[in-house]
Design a binder for these strands. Structure first.
Lengths: 128, 128
DNA sequence: TACCTTCAACCACAGAGGTAGTAGAGAATG
DNA sequence: CATTCTCTACTACCTCTGTGGTTGAAGGTA
């Protein structure tokens, strides 16, 4: 199957797995900031659903607790999100850029960085 | 209340209103490409929900059919979407840009355009 | 061993979104 | 006027998310 769609909460859980590596539900739960932290069982439910979606798998068992591992890469999940998002704009990036600039999220630095990346990218596919 | 969150289908419906102006449910329905067009009543349901969310209002009645008008602007809805989306990335634009470049969505043209917009933007807020 | 803690597993439930059917009012037409 | 078409209004139903309670097994501890 293709890359599963992940909701916001699911992404937060994956984030814990991606940054901390293999984790128990308890560890994932603790990663949430105290303020607005969901119940332990909520995290548990989401981890189970992620497992059902194939985004996560059981790595091993320590004592009576399961340790999970992300099987879906952060990059793949992000790409999925980006594609999904841009489909709202017919795949056109320009309107999005306009909003980013107006809200001050996109700076000159970012643009410079983008140019560098683009150059690397094109050079890689069209080596002279 | 603040800007309501709109789903994909809801956005498609708003798109019809935004581009065609005031519309009846029938007209909105007809805007969908034949392939994968939802049932008339489905569109109706969504329009009602959009009305409940305050994104749309009844402009007038012609015969026995209602004509709707968007009360939420395309810009506001888009900004909402963009903010929502970037919150997945902690508000950082760079990882998104990387994906865009890798998938070929972001071209040199786009970057040039972005620079122009950014210049205009900064000049407007900090006129020398 | 008897108790306390910690998990996994399972269950429940509400809200949003997507999908659509049906009933009944009104308009249009022969 | 009677029939047919077209809309609105209402209802139903399924899936996905988010949320969290309950139960019972496993492990640790006095």
């Amino acid at each position: 199957m293709s890359i599963p769609k992940l909701s916001k909460l699911e992404m937060q859980i994956m984030d814990a797995l991606w940054t901390k590596g293999e984790c128990s539900v308890r560890e994932i739960h603790d990663e949430f900031p105290e303020k607005g932290r969901p119940a332990y069982t909520t995290v548990q439910t989401m981890v189970n659903r992620l497992e059902a979606k194939g985004a996560v798998e059981r790595a091993k068992k320590i004592g009576n607790s399961l340790i999970f591992r992300a099987t879906l890469s952060r990059t793949a999940a992000h790409r999925r999100l980006v594609d999904e998002f841009f489909s709202f704009f017919d795949g056109r990036v320009q309107p999005v850029i306009a909003h980013l600039i107006q809200s001050g999220k996109l700076t000159g630095e970012d643009i410079k960085e983008a140019q560098k990346l683009l150059k690397e990218h094109t050079e890689k596919r069209e080596p002279r």
